[in-house]
């Protein structure tokens, strides 16, 4: 029987902190921006709408500028956070696992061993199709928390990663 049980030197283990993570495609930020802009436009529209409706019904004077500036400040803050958070979205593939990092306020690095992957899915929304991007979804048998969804990969790369993972998963079984 070819069995060894050597002591593991923790220092020599492959380190995730030494890994060079690759940022996702820059053009994905355009998609985020478009989505955000739609939301911001909706919010500002809501302020005007609210003022219009309320002032018609009741004789209350709402200060439009206060409300508007509050909403605008919120939007700018939100925009800066999402810009900084975008730079944190990174991924990497190692021999035995897939690593994905994201989040500015709550930063997380998730690793899914390839041997535990149940299936991989590549999906594209119409906006993503326009920019040539796709989302790679990696499903494990675990809870929803252990599934990965890497958004904004260049389509070619997503396809390649998907192929590599599928091959390895199938080879295992």
């Amino acid at each position: 029987m070819n069995f060894t049980n050597l002591q593991i030197d923790i220092e020599t283990l492959p380190k995730v902190e030494d890994l060079v993570l690759k940022p996702i495609s820059k053009s994905y930020f355009k998609i985020i921006m478009l989505n955000k802009l739609a939301v911001y436009a909706g919010l500002i529209g809501l302020v005007f709408g609210l003022k219009y409706i309320i002032e018609k019904k009741e004789e209350v004077q709402l200060n439009l500028y206060y409300m508007l500036s509050a909403v605008v400040v919120f939007c700018i803050f939100n925009f800066i956070v999402s810009l900084l958070a975008f730079k944190k979205r990174k991924y990497a593939m190692r021999e035995h696992d897939v690593v994905y990092a994201k989040g500015l306020i709550v930063h997380s690095i998730t690793t899914v061993p390839i041997s535990k992957i149940q299936h991989v899915e590549e999906s594209r929304s119409w906006l993503a199709r326009y920019f040539g991007l796709s989302t790679l979804k990696i499903f494990t048998a675990g809870e929803a928390g252990s599934d990965l969804s890497i958004k904004g990969l260049p389509q070619l790369e997503a396809k390649q990663i998907k192929e590599i993972i599928s091959d390895k998963v199938n080879a295992n079984n």
Binding site: V16, L104, I105, V106, H107, S108, I109, T110, T111, V112, P113, K116, T140, A141, G142, G145, S146, L148
Partner: peptide, 14 residues
């Protein structure tokens, strides 16, 4: 039996 491992850190913990 581990399916995935994650490190979590808030901006304040950094």
């Amino acid at each position: 039996k581990i399916q995935a491992v994650k490190i979590k850190q808030t901006i304040f913990q950094n």
